Amino acid sequence: MSLTVAPESGVTLPCTSREFRNAMGQFATGVVVVTANTEGEVHAMTANSFMSGSLEPPLVLVSIAKSAKMHERITKAQSFGISILAQDQEWCSNHFAGKTHPVLVPNFVQLEHIPVVEGANVQVATVLRHAYECGDHTLFVGEVTALVQDQGPAPPLVFHAGKYAAIAGAN
């Protein structure tokens, strides 16, 4: 990677993968759980590389590492779910990031035959429409087939600089 940087910034380029990741971590994001159902088995992973892509038709995008098990599962299922987590679901985010809670276990509900996390602020079911290679990741574009939003959503779970954060003034 070759970039031009102002000399006073103190940054040396090209940067390492870790330096790039740390820099991009300065962009606060929400936290989602991505789900897929393959061969009757629910699979899930935590992600923060999620965004809406289009209003007409309603599309969402998620970026998944090619090395992640979820990559193959979305490709195989040709669909995926997105659960936008609430601030009090940090334990759920950790669970699907490999840090399980000794007592709490996430539950799933079906939305158009797609598993989503029970109690999430927003639950989305999609059909896979596009998959774009993007370096060591793939951008999966899903067309929204169903959406449920909590009528009294809790403050969102936020991730910033490698840790969970709270939005100031959120109830």
Rank of each mutant, 00 (worst) to 15 (best):
E112H: 15
P57E: 06
A77R: 11
S79D: 02
H43L: 07
A68R: 01
K66T: 05
L59R: 15
R73E: 10
P57Y: 04
K76G: 09
H113P: 03
E72D: 14
E56I: 12
A47C: 06
V62G: 08
I64G: 12
F50R: 02
L61Y: 07
E56K: 13
P115D: 05
P106S: 03
E112S: 15
S54I: 14
C92T: 03
I64E: 10
M70A: 07
E72N: 10
V103R: 06
H71M: 08
K99A: 14
I114K: 03
F50D: 01
N48Q: 08
H95T: 02
V60I: 14
V117L: 05
M45Q: 06
G81I: 01
I84F: 00
G53C: 14
S63M: 15
G53N: 10
A77H: 08
I64F: 10
S54A: 15
A77S: 14
E90K: 10
K76W: 05
V103W: 02
G98N: 04
P58H: 00
A86P: 05
L61C: 11
I74Y: 02
S79T: 00
H71V: 05
Q87K: 09
T100N: 09
L104H: 03
P57F: 04
S49W: 00
Q110V: 13
L55Y: 10
K69C: 15
A86Q: 09
H101M: 06
K69E: 15
C92P: 03
N94I: 14
T46V: 07
N48S: 11
P58V: 02
M45E: 04
V60K: 06
P106A: 02
T75V: 03
G81K: 01
A86Y: 06
V60M: 12
P102Y: 01
A77G: 12
A65T: 09
M45P: 11
N94K: 15
L111V: 08
S83T: 08
F80Y: 08
S52Y: 03
F80I: 09
K99N: 14
P57G: 10
P106D: 03
